[in-house]
Simulated scan of single mutants.
Amino acid sequence: MTKYKVLKEFRDKNTQAIHPIDSIYETDSKSRVEELKGFIGPEIKETSILDQKVETVLASLDGLPSEKLEEYLGQEKNGRNRKTVVEHISALLKVLNGEEYESGEVK
């Protein structure tokens, strides 16, 4: 479903749900988006931690659970595949799994 920010409160004619200002409205119907012009803003683009600069990515990864780190590792390897990011995520996973990281960066 595509997400849109609500600009003006409205009641959905299909569900009768009230959508207050600043809430998120979800639909995949282009015709419904056209009907709601003036009530909803442009499509909200989902961003990922991995869309940021390397320094920002590295700082954002600390403290995440291993499941999320594994997900980000797969996304990075299949996407931009930045060596520093891949190595940092791998090091964090080793620490979380009780393994010692050999490069000396994280122990």
Rank of each mutant, 00 (worst) to 15 (best):
L93D: 09
V57M: 13
G79K: 07
I49M: 08
E71F: 11
Q75C: 01
T84D: 13
I44D: 01
K83T: 10
P42C: 02
F10R: 03
G63Q: 06
L69P: 04
V86M: 07
P42M: 02
E87Y: 14
I24E: 06
E46M: 01
K37C: 02
S48W: 05
L36R: 01
G98P: 03
N78V: 02
G38P: 06
K53F: 10
K45G: 00
D12H: 10
E43F: 08
Q16M: 09
I49Y: 15
G41D: 07
E26W: 08
L61G: 02
G79I: 02
H19Y: 15
Y101M: 01
K53A: 14
L36D: 00
Y101E: 10
T15M: 10
E9M: 05
L69T: 09
E70A: 07
K30G: 15
G38V: 05
Y25D: 01
K30Y: 14
Q16P: 01
R80S: 11
Q75T: 02
E9D: 04
D22A: 11
K30E: 15
N81T: 01
R32Y: 08
V33T: 11
E46Q: 12
E46T: 02
K8D: 09
P42I: 01
K94N: 14
V95W: 08
K8T: 12
Y72P: 00
D62F: 13
Y72F: 14
F39G: 00
A91N: 06
P42Y: 05
G41N: 08
A17D: 13
L96Y: 15
E87F: 15
Q52C: 07
K37P: 01
L64V: 04
S48K: 07
R11Y: 09
F39D: 00
Y101C: 07
I49V: 14
S90V: 01
I49C: 06
T27I: 06
E71Q: 14
E35T: 09
N81P: 02
S60Q: 12
E34D: 03
I40W: 11
E9V: 07
E34I: 03
D28G: 15
E9R: 06
E76F: 07
S31F: 14
A59E: 13
K68H: 12
R11H: 05
F10K: 02
L36V: 02
I44R: 03
D51H: 08
L58S: 03
S90Q: 15
K45L: 03
I89D: 04
L58A: 05
D62E: 15
T15G: 09
L96Q: 15
S66G: 04
D51F: 06
D12Q: 09
E67I: 13
E43L: 07
V85E: 11
D22I: 01
L92G: 03
I18T: 15
G74Y: 12
E46W: 00
D28M: 15
K94V: 03
F39V: 00
L93Y: 12
G41H: 05
D51I: 10
K13N: 07
L64T: 05
L36T: 00
I89N: 05
T84M: 09
P42A: 04
I49D: 03
R80P: 01
G41P: 04
H19Q: 10
V95R: 14
I21S: 02
L36Y: 06
D28I: 13
A59P: 00
E35L: 12
T15K: 08
E70R: 12
